[in-house]
Structures are given as C-alpha cells and as structure tokens.
C-alpha cells in the first residue's frame, strides 16, 4: 500500500526577480491535518512561496501538486476551486461590504454561484456564514462594514473567508502581522483548533518563535531563498545552522513589520 498523496507537494520551485533569487530549489510536503510553520528572516522568500502555491506567481522551475494534481501555473481562482484557502500578509477583504457579506461572498464563490442574477445574495448561505464568523470570534461584528473593523478583526474575518467552502489546504502568510502579543497567541490557537477539527493542512508563517514552537507540528526554514531545515519543531530549534542564520542573527519576533 502506498501512502496517501500529501495535500501539498512542492518540488524544486525557483523564482527570480531580475537578478534577485527569491526562491532556489525549494521542496516540501504537507499531510492532511498538519500545521506546518514556514519561518525565515524578512526577504527570505516566504511570501513568494505562498504566491507560487496559490497561483499568483508562476515559478521559473519546479512543480506544485495539490492532492496529487499538478497545478503549476494555474490561476488563483482555479486553485481556489480545488480547495485552497488563503490569507495575505496584508489582510485583503472587501471593505465596502459587511463582515457577513464578505463571508457570504466567499461561500457563494466556493459554490460556483457567482453568476446568479436574481435572488438576493443577502439570503444565500447566511447561516453558514454566520457560523463561520461565530467560529472565528467575529459573530458580534457580522453586520459591521469591513472598513470599520479593527485590523486584528480584519485578519479574523479573512480567516473566516479562507475557511469558506471547506478547503483542504489553508495558506496563511503572517496571519498575526500587526497584532499584539496576546492576540497573536489567540489567533494561532484558533487556527489550530479549527484545523484540527476539520483535518485541514495548514501552511503558515509567523515571526514569534514562541508561537511557532508552541503550536506548529513541523517547521521548515528558509534563508535567502533556500530551504535549510525541515523537521519537528524541537529538532529545528536545536539545528545549529538554523540558530546561526536565523535565531542568532536577528531577534525573533521583534523584526520590523512590513
């Protein structure tokens, strides 16, 4: 019997911007139910990696497989359709809509209901949307315009949207950027709870090492576009190379926010 194919398999992806090698032969996999932390100093290539996996960027070389299917070069909306949810380093939601409408929109899109011209969207998928907001701790804010939410709440709303349509894989680029320390821990704990319950595979980046070592199952470390470590968090923490280029070099958790 062969092992079940991983939810995400990245093989040898590379990407350059002009002369800058942002990614250089990076490979890793994520299994269902696994919380994988992608860490590395600013400019290591983490966001580029996310953008390639979700189709925003086309890699110069290498392949991306999702649930055994080659998705390299597919546009983001097609990849979303395969069950991939994503949040951005700078949270992106629809500011002119209420929080509830934001999640309803995500649900409608996930169910391929965008080309509906008659029935009011307000009545579509309302219960599910409210449930998602409830789960991410946003229940009380459902009717508020997204433009009026505090940044931490926008991040939570974005998570609710990414979870719409029952994704198999969740990509979270710095889900806690711009949050206070207490809020960060809460957010990752929330992600962990939600994903455990759903058997979701999650790839996320996070600058606070306490948070990473406290919650992730496994960590991979990027430095200057190369993967320098991959393993259980304890092993990664002890890895001398990681300590040198990352933990030793900069003070984790206190870097300049983008």
């Amino acid at each position: 019997m062969s092992a079940p194919s991983p939810v995400l398999a990245v093989r040898g992806i590379a990407k350059s911007y002009g002369g800058v090698r942002a990614l250089d032969g990076v490979s890793f996999e994520i299994a269902a139910g696994e919380l994988l932390a992608l860490i590395g100093p600013n400019g290591a290539g983490k966001s580029t990696c996310f953008n390639i996996v979700n189709g925003q960027l086309r890699p110069d070389a290498g392949t991306v497989h999702i649930l055994g299917r080659d998705v390299t070069g597919l546009p983001p909306r097609r990849i979303a359709g395969l069950g991939v949810g994503r949040t951005f380093q700078v949270a992106a939601v629809f500011p002119s809509m209420t929080a509830l409408e934001n999640v309803q929109m995500a649900l409608i899109a996930a169910r391929r209901g965008v080309f509906g011209f008659w029935h009011p969207a307000r009545r579509i998928a309302r219960e599910e949307a409210l449930a998602l907001l409830e789960q991410t701790g946003m229940g009380a804010q459902a009717e508020r315009p997204a433009a009026a939410l505090a940044y931490g709440d926008v991040k939570r709303l974005e998570l609710a949207m990414a979870l719409a349509g029952e994704p198999k894989l969740l990509l979270m680029d710095e889900p806690t950027a711009g949050m206070a320390a207490g809020e960060r821990r809460e957010m990752i704990a929330l992600v962990r709870r939600l994903t455990r319950a759903r058997g979701l595979a999650v790839l996320f980046t996070e600058h606070s090492m306490d948070v990473v070592f406290g919650h992730a199952d496994r960590a991979i470390v990027l430095a200057r576009g190369r993967l320098i470590a991959d393993g259980p968090v304890d092993a990664v923490r002890r890895d001398p190379l990681v300590r040198e280029v990352y933990l030793g070099g900069t003070r984790p958790g206190r870097e300049a926010r983008p």
Binding site: A80, G81, A92, F94, P95, M97
Partner: peptide, 10 residues
C-alpha cells in the same frame, strides 16, 4: 474592492 482577494476566493 480587492481583485487579489476576489481571485483568491475563486
């Protein structure tokens, strides 16, 4: 509002 978000949502 956000082409990025819209595309990422499918």
């Amino acid at each position: 509002d956000s082409r990025l978000r819209a595309e990422a949502s499918g």
